[in-house]
Simulated scan of single mutants.
Amino acid sequence: MDGLMFDTERISVPCWRAIGRKYGIDMEDSFFDTIFGMNNAKIKEIFLQTYGADFPYDAFHDEKKAMQLAIYHEKGAPAEPGLQECLDYARQEGIRCAVASSSAEETVRLLLHKAGLESYFCHIQSGDAMAHSKPAPDIFLAVCRALGIRPERALVLEDSGNGLKAAAAAHIPSIWVPDLVRVEPAVAATAWHTCQTLADVPPLIQNLPVWKESAN
């Protein structure tokens, strides 16, 4: 969801950095490339490895989350280009859509509500409900179980390297839609295809009926 459906990373990065300065840490761009796509438990693990076991991550995260949610409550987050077209195409063709996001369910539902897109999704799988974060395949496999489809008949859209790794580990074909997060070429190569925006997805899959059939 973050960076794929909504341009949240341009909101979250300044929040991370603002609270980070308060706690005396400076986060490089490469650090965000590492953590984006992971759930909070995994991010905490990386923070403690990077900044020391005594770093007060929980308090830090609570302040960052409050700052970010205040922005979302006020004005939501900008939709990524092509999101509406992609969802309209899926609805028209009977393709079921689910959200598999490392963000907390509270955040996912808030952003969908603010954008008026809740009705497009038949299932939401949030990262805070998963024991193992992306790049583990668990969250995508959980969605497949919830929808009653085999992984090879699903399709993952991702912007992060951790998400692409998770899709590959789940043996689900993926489409990479690049955003702010830098992805290593070897990881990007695991994607079935690359689309520059979500608007490019419908023309790509319209002649591939496997995902439409999986809705029946």
Rank of each mutant, 00 (worst) to 15 (best):
D200G: 01
L147K: 09
E74R: 03
M5T: 06
S103E: 05
M5K: 03
V143E: 06
A53I: 14
F121Q: 15
V201I: 07
Y120D: 10
L83V: 15
S101K: 00
I149P: 12
T197P: 09
T50G: 06
V13Q: 03
G20C: 05
R91L: 09
V13G: 00
L208W: 10
I46Q: 07
I95Q: 12
L208M: 08
I43C: 11
G20L: 03
P178Q: 01
K64C: 10
L4P: 02
P173Q: 14
R21G: 10
S101F: 00
Y72V: 02
I172N: 11
G76F: 07
A191P: 08
G94C: 02
G161Y: 07
E118T: 02
I124G: 02
L198H: 10
A167P: 13
A170R: 15
W176A: 00
V183G: 08
V99F: 09
Q92H: 13
G76W: 09
P173T: 10
L69C: 04
G82H: 13
D88R: 15
G37W: 10
E158T: 07
M27G: 04
P78H: 03
L110M: 13
S174M: 07
Y120C: 03
E45H: 00
I46T: 12
G163F: 02
P151S: 02
T197A: 00
F60T: 02
G20I: 12
L141M: 02
A189N: 09
T197M: 04
I11C: 01
C122M: 14
P178D: 03
F36S: 03
V181Y: 06
G76N: 11
A131S: 12
I175W: 15
A18S: 13
S119Q: 13
P151A: 00
N39C: 02
L4H: 00
M38R: 10
C15G: 01
P185S: 01
C86H: 04
E80F: 05
A191S: 05
Q206M: 01
T197N: 06
A167L: 03
P135W: 06
E85K: 05
S12M: 05
I95Y: 10
L87Q: 14
D29Y: 01
G94T: 03
G163M: 00
M1D: 14
D7A: 06
Q125V: 01
R96Q: 12
Y23R: 08
